[in-house]
Amino acid sequence: MKLLLVEDDAALAAEICRMLRAAHCALDHAVNGEDAQHLGETGTYDAVILDLGLPKRDGLSVLQAWRSAGLTLPVLVLTARDGWSDKVAGFKAGADDFLVKPFRAEELVIRLRALVRRAAAHGVARVTCGPLTYEAGLGSFERDGLPLKLTGLEWRVLSCLILRKDAVVPRAQLIERVYDGDADVDSNSVEVIITRLRRKIAPARIEGVRGLGYQLLPGGPA
């Protein structure tokens, strides 16, 4: 999953980032409402984790702006407020779920996966490419019906490719997906990951398109 975390508490944000990256998620992080609104409107995310108490612009107004702009991505609201009236206001603004602070890490991951799974039910819940099957809601891969073991970086590359299997995915987009937009990474490291994936997914294959990027193909001769 590619997630947008909107949280101005540095310690909490660092803990959430650590936990979600361990769960094979890629993250962008905003610390105020203005940046959050911009990222939500210009980025591509599977879900958003949104705090309500933000500087510059509060979370509810950010959420209302997203919904007014037609953005339908799932939004999980983090809040220290446990009152029913606050939740009603959040749901009216377009929230999909609430999680009250403090919370367990496992619950955040479970709730996010449930949100993405429900969103996938209205779109593409399962994607296949040759022997590969990707369950979008669960974030799991199978090869010939058996679970496919992947590292976190391998998972990020393969999920990006299979969700865009009919198109060539630019190298820069893969780097952003894998390394959370870190511009200083060595782009050759993506090729290393792809080399490992090619061994794991055969007869499906990843084909490099010179000067453009990579495309996932179901199999057969190169």
Rank of each mutant, 00 (worst) to 15 (best):
S189M: 03
A30C: 15
V192N: 08
V109E: 10
D184G: 04
L138E: 14
L112G: 06
P170K: 05
G90Y: 05
L148Q: 03
G59Y: 03
S159M: 08
D51A: 11
S159W: 07
V100M: 04
L50K: 02
D51N: 12
R126T: 13
G94W: 02
A22E: 12
Y179R: 04
A89M: 09
K101Q: 11
L115D: 02
E107N: 06
R156D: 01
A172M: 10
S189E: 14
G137P: 04
L138G: 10
I194K: 05
V77N: 07
A125Y: 03
D35V: 13
Q215Y: 06
L12T: 15
K149S: 11
P102H: 00
R126K: 11
A11G: 08
Q215K: 15
N188S: 13
G139A: 02
V127A: 09
D86A: 11
L27Q: 04
Y134R: 09
F141E: 03
T195F: 07
A26P: 00
R210A: 13
T42K: 13
D51F: 08
A14V: 10
K149I: 04
E34N: 12
V190D: 01
R143G: 02
L150H: 03
K56N: 11
R18M: 14
I194G: 05
H122R: 14
S85A: 15
M1E: 03
R177N: 01
G211T: 01
E207D: 11
L115V: 06
S189R: 12
Q173R: 14
D86V: 11
V116S: 07
L60I: 11
A119T: 08
P74G: 05
A202V: 02
P170Q: 06
Y134V: 04
V169D: 04
G213E: 07
V48T: 07
V124C: 13
Y134S: 10
L71C: 09
D9I: 11
P203S: 06
S140M: 09
P218D: 03
V157R: 02
R198V: 00
L146I: 00
H24P: 05
A167F: 13
L76R: 09
A204Y: 02
E191P: 00
F141D: 01
T133A: 12
L150S: 02
E176A: 13
G213K: 09
T151S: 15
D97I: 04
A183S: 09
A30Y: 07
D144Y: 01
D35N: 12
M1W: 05
C129R: 08
C25I: 02
R57L: 14
L39D: 08
A125P: 08
D46W: 10
A105R: 12
R164D: 10
E191I: 00
L174Q: 08
G40Y: 05
D28N: 11
A69N: 12
L3S: 03
R57E: 09
L27I: 07
